[in-house]
Write a protein that binds this DNA or RNA. Structure first.
Lengths: 339, 339
DNA sequence: TTGAAAGCGCTAACAT
DNA sequence: ATGTTAGCGCTTTCAA
């Protein structure tokens, strides 16, 4: 047992003031680095702080200053590695600006999302970045329109909420053009349901590009899943493989996890990738380069997406009535061996 | 423009009280569901709340009640899918008990970890669960020993901090015994550096089990990485493959990501898995079952790990001087095709 | 340069 | 059943 610094019960600023023989105002000034305190006094206070093991109660400070310097990031499922780099981007600019970024897993559940928004309403966080599906954002957008938040990746352009994302319509078109340039005309789309805006946009981009190439897609080549699981992709591929003659020669999955499942599914059905079927994914998550064959995929500028989102939010926080634009960032098709 | 509910500037409880023609105490009672308020009064208050668009300021409430009902979970890298299920476990029991769980990415950086601990010190969170490497926990354990936190997966048994994890020594031994039972005697360990306790423990378990089997491992078969990347595993395998005659016939990687890299590395060097080399991983992350060949690995009860950690923390919060035990949960070897 | 004192918005003890 | 009031721990005028 040492008798050095050990916090007793709940030391307050008044205790420190008493100990240092000054007023609480002076202690507060020292704590906040105000310059108008004599060096000698400043030192006395420092001593008292150290000796008492005092820690400022930020709850009290926040109540007074009416800000928490906490930012929330809401993701539908942080088990999805896609979000990792985005969140890192958010985190880094938040930290650079003196904010903490805390992550919330909403499970894409509107109720849970709402409960996190309540942290904003209750002034316990200063702002939020929401990556939830557009559909669940929509449920809140109206009542939450006065709250300081921005949308990332998923957004409703008409909601009046600042957002950042990519041009999914264009990206899907790029994939189709890449595939048709390689001679494919029988191209399947493995999509993940319409709750996500990106699903709708990529479907549209897929369709439009196909139409531009004068290709009429077989209805069975449009598969809508309600999952991003490997298994779901695998089942979709099995289903596609069972088409026999009408089997597609290329498959575009809207996520890498799905694409990896698709590759497995085709392999299981006796088809080789890319020789029998080409497979393209989306996102370029870490494992994409390390499956066999390495996955051709669309890469999003994830870090930048996050940084931009955080930037928009901070701007909105600084000036609540500033015009904050929606921004679209460029994607890139990464060619590997699967297509 | 509608003239319905629209929050004016910062409505306070006093505004609501005035509007309802009652005292702030009564409003507070209604807000907190106290029963000793007449139904008619209660209703007046409800009306006033609705009409004013009032939202309680939880910062103020928290200052008063001295609790935030926020729990923090610190992970070294949430890009690592291993943490997903654990965090979900924590989240679910936190929510069941009326707490919010917020996730912090420390990047295994002691400074960042410390800054999150400051949220505890500043009373902005009630408790924390730390999954950071034992080494970085250690740096804080002493000064943070009075703070309400528990360790999960990584822990220092001698630190006096409640913890939950698995028996890594035993698990590594299980892998070795599984491999030797299959006839392997040349077994490599691909480890991830000694900053992590699990690395040390799995190394020890590996060594001990080998010794028990009367096997003396070739020094070159013990490779220590400082990364969990696919690439790192790939390089390690290439290195092992280059050993020629002295090449191991089996490799045990301490994480699935590493193991997947190892498989790629061996494949790249012309060796087939499992025929030329058997590969075993650790964690059983989602993709493990979906690589080719599917990965044999040690599965941790991740959800339960998280639930247990949250349980320990809540117990400690309810009774700060309760004896909170360290607990070890069972693991399981999942046999697939890679070994 | 320093101190006294008024709140920030809420809860809870004490009165009535 | 309801109101009055004293804080929670801090920051920030305003005075000295």
């Amino acid at each position: 047992m040492s008798d050095t610094v050990r916090p007793r019960e709940e030391v307050s600023i008044a205790d420190v003031a008493e100990r240092a023989g000054v007023s609480v105002a002076t202690v507060s000034r020292v704590l906040n680095g105000h310059t108008n305190v004599r060096e000698a006094t400043r030192e006395k206070v420092r001593q008292a702080v150290a000796a008492s093991g005092y820690r400022i109660n930020e709850l009290a400070r926040n109540l007074r200053t009416a800000e928490s310097r906490l930012l929330l990031t809401m993701v539908p499922d942080f088990g999805n590695p896609f979000y990792a780099a985005i969140v890192r981007g958010i985190d880094s600019v938040a930290r650079q600006n003196g904010y903490f970024m805390l992550l919330c897993d909403t499970g894409a559940d509107p109720l849970r999302e709402r409960s996190y928004f309540d942290l904003l309403r209750g002034r316990r966080a200063d702002g939020a970045i929401c990556l939830d599906p557009a559909a669940v954002q929509k449920a809140l957008a109206e009542e939450a329109s006065t709250l300081p938040w921005v949308a990332c990746c998923e957004f409703d352009p008409s909601a009046g909420v600042p957002y950042v994302g990519i041009d999914n319509h264009l990206a899907a078109g790029d994939v189709v053009r890449y595939l048709t340039a390689k001679g494919h005309r029988k191209i399947a789309l493995i999509n993940s349901g319409q709750g996500y805006l990106y699903g709708q946009q990529r479907l549209a981009g897929f369709r439009d590009a196909l139409a531009d190439a004068g290709i009429e897609p077989h209805p069975a080549w449009l598969v809508e899943l309600d999952s991003l699981d490997y298994d779901a992709g695998e089942r979709a591929a099995a289903q596609l493989a069972a088409l026999g003659e009408a089997r597609p020669t290329a498959a575009f999955a809207v996520s890498d996890t799905l694409a990896i499942g698709v590759m497995n599914g085709f392999r299981g059905a006796g088809y080789a990738v890319p020789d029998d079927v080409a497979v393209v994914g989306f996102d370029d998550i870490a494992v994409a380069a390390h499956v066999d064959p390495p996955l051709t995929t669309v890469s999003q500028p994830m870090q930048l997406l996050g940084e931009t989102a955080a930037g928009l939010l901070l701007k909105r926080l600084r000036d609540p009535r500033a015009e904050v634009p929606g921004v679209l960032l460029p994607h890139r098709l990464i060619q590997r061996r699967s297509a």
